[in-house]
Amino acid sequence: MKTLTKDYPLQLSGDDSPIVRFQNVTKRYGELVVLDALDLDVAEGEMVTIIGPSGSGKTTVLRMLMALEKIDDGVIYVNGEPMTHMEKNGALVRASKKHLRQQRTNIGMCFQHFNLFPHMTALENCIEAPIQVLGLSKKEACQRAEELLDMVGMLEKCHEHPARLSGGQKQRVAIARSLAMRPKVMLFDEVTSALDPEVIGEVTQVIRKLVAKHNLTMLMVTHQMGFAKEISDRVCFFFDGKIEEQGSSSQLFDNPQKERTQQFLSAVLEAG
């Protein structure tokens, strides 16, 4: 990839600089453009929810930010530093693996299908990366993990393997596992979509708690419109790899301006 010299700052500075910035980010799978020159800023402590029809690029936004996949164009900044790129001789070049690993420490992610490690207990899931990646002692890691498992209400089951936990319980452990890495930005990728309706509440309750008590920046992709409306500082409606409309949750849900937003919301609300 060519070096980027123009238009992309080497760093974001200033008090009001966002903790996450997508600048002109494009992602293609072959011919298919999944993200189309996306610009998106997220302020520190902000809770941003991404909604939209399937295939609109919602999940891709999170996957790019977690650096699970490479972007094709543009730059993502995290905490003021370019994440997908790094500075070399006064210009931005594609990030090395080392740079990506360093930048990933800022981000935590929870998945639709939990992806807990099945060969480890809930507690072991939560101490694995803090010990192996952050170099914590087992004692420190256990203490941190137990606090978090307690916060998500899973301390009693901390010695169970994931196979013996319900979906809601697994997702709560997965949230604790991500938080154990002390990320600055948390990503929730449809974390309630694979859950039975009666256990969705235990997971959304944990997220509510995070919003209320911690100054954590969060990006959430969800189909739970009620929850999104209640909890978000800002809602972005995605369509065809672009932000079609965004605004505060009351603006977007109660008074959508664009026709596509109106269509989407009425279709979703009709389905219940």
Binding site: G108, P118, Q132
Partner: peptide, 27 residues
């Protein structure tokens, strides 16, 4: 081993060697 396991290990910032030894190979 499901792709989600690789991604979870990556999201927790595990190195490729640790990911293989601690997460993928045992499964």
């Amino acid at each position: 081993v499901p792709k989600g396991q690789w991604e979870a290990a990556l999201a927790l910032n595990m190195s490729p060697a640790k990911r293989m030894i601690r997460i993928i190979f045992p499964q």
